[in-house]
C-alpha cells in the first residue's frame, strides 16, 4: 500500500476546472516532485490534498480517504502544508506564525519548536520579528517551520525556491533532505525549477494545464531530451 495515493483527481474553482484526472502515488519516506509551468495546477494539487478546493476522484493517506474531510482533520491525520512564502501572516512575529501551526499538535509544541529551531537557528534568533520585514529565505523557513509545528508525517511544500537566490535554494534543498532522512518525513514538493526538483526527488510528475503529461524517475527524465526541451529548458 502506498503512503499517498491520488486517483483520477479533478479539481474545480467554481465552474472552472483546474485539474483533470491526476493520478499520483507516493511511497513512505519518498521525496516526490510535481513540476510544471505557472498555471499548471501544482498549487491546486496541494490545495486539493489539504481539502481546500472542491474535488472529484479519490485521495488516500495510508489507505484512508481524505475526500470530504475538513482541513483540520487532514492536518491531524499527519499532513503538513508549507505554502508559498507569500502565504504567511505578514504582521505577526515569527513565533506567532509558528504558533498558528501548533494548534493541531498541542502536546508536541515544545518538541516541535525545538526541531524547528534546530533546523533554522535564525528563526530562534528572530522570533519576535514581523515576517513582513524578513528576507525571502527567512520567510520560507517560517513557512516550513509552521508546517513542522503540526507534527506531520507527510510534508507538502509549495514552490520552495520561488524567487530565491541559488545559494538559498541549496540550503533549502539540504533542509528538505534532512527532513526526509533524519526525521523520516515523506515529502511532496511542487516546483517550476526543474533542476532543483531533479536533484532532490526520487520521482517526478510533470503537470501542464491541469493535466499529467508524464512521470518518471530522476534518471529517466534526465535522459528524455524531448521532455528536457519542453519542460526543463534543454538541460
Amino acid at each position: 500500500m502506498s503512503f499517498l495515493e491520488i486517483d483520477n483527481l479533478s479539481a474545480f474553482y467554481g465552474k472552472a476546472q483546474a485539474l483533470t484526472d491526476i493520478s499520483i502515488t507516493v511511497q513512505p519516506g519518498e521525496i516526490v516532485a510535481v513540476v510544471g509551468p505557472n498555471g499548471a495546477g501544482k498549487s491546486t494539487l496541494l490545495d486539493s490534498i489539504m481539502g481546500l478546493v472542491k474535488t472529484e476522484g479519490d485521495i488516500r493517506l495510508r489507505g484512508h480517504s481524505l475526500v470530504g474531510r475538513s482541513s483540520s482533520e487532514i492536518v491531524r491525520s499527519g499532513v503538513g502544508y508549507a505554502p508559498e512564502r507569500f502565504n504567511l501572516f505578514p504582521y505577526m512575529s515569527v513565533r506567532d506564525n509558528l504558533m498558528v501551526g501548533a494548534f493541531t499538535a498541542r502536546e508536541d509544541i515544545q518538541s516541535n519548536l525545538d526541531i524547528v529551531h534546530k533546523l533554522f537557528p535564525r528563526l530562534k534568533e528572530r522570533e519576535g520579528q514581523e515576517t513582513s520585514t524578513q528576507s525571502g529565505g527567512e520567510r520560507q523557513m517560517v513557512s516550513f517551520g509552521r508546517a513542522l509545528m503540526t507534527s506531520p508525517e507527510l510534508l507538502l511544500i509549495d514552490e520552495p525556491t520561488i524567487g530565491l537566490a541559488p545559494k538559498i535554494c541549496l540550503e533549502i534543498a539540504e533542509v528538505i533532505r534532512q527532513l526526509n532522512s533524519e526525521y523520516g518525513l515523506t515529502v511532496v514538493i511542487t516546483e517550476q525549477n526543474a533542476n532543483f526538483a531533479l536533484s532532490l526527488a526520487s520521482r517526478i510528475y510533470v503537470l501542464e494545464s491541469g493535466r499529467m503529461q508524464t512521470s518518471g524517475t530522476e534518471a529517466e527524465l534526465r535522459n528524455d531530451k524531448r521532455l528536457l526541451d519542453a519542460y526543463f529548458g534543454g538541460h
Partner: peptide, 23 residues
C-alpha cells in the same frame, strides 16, 4: 493566547489558517 493569535491570522490570510489545520 494562541486563540487570539489565530483570530488575528484569519484577518491576514484565511486560506493559510485553513491550510494550517484550523477551522
Amino acid at each position: 493566547t494562541r486563540l487570539g493569535t489565530a483570530l488575528a491570522a484569519i484577518g491576514m490570510n484565511e486560506e493559510s489558517v485553513r491550510g494550517s489545520g484550523l477551522s
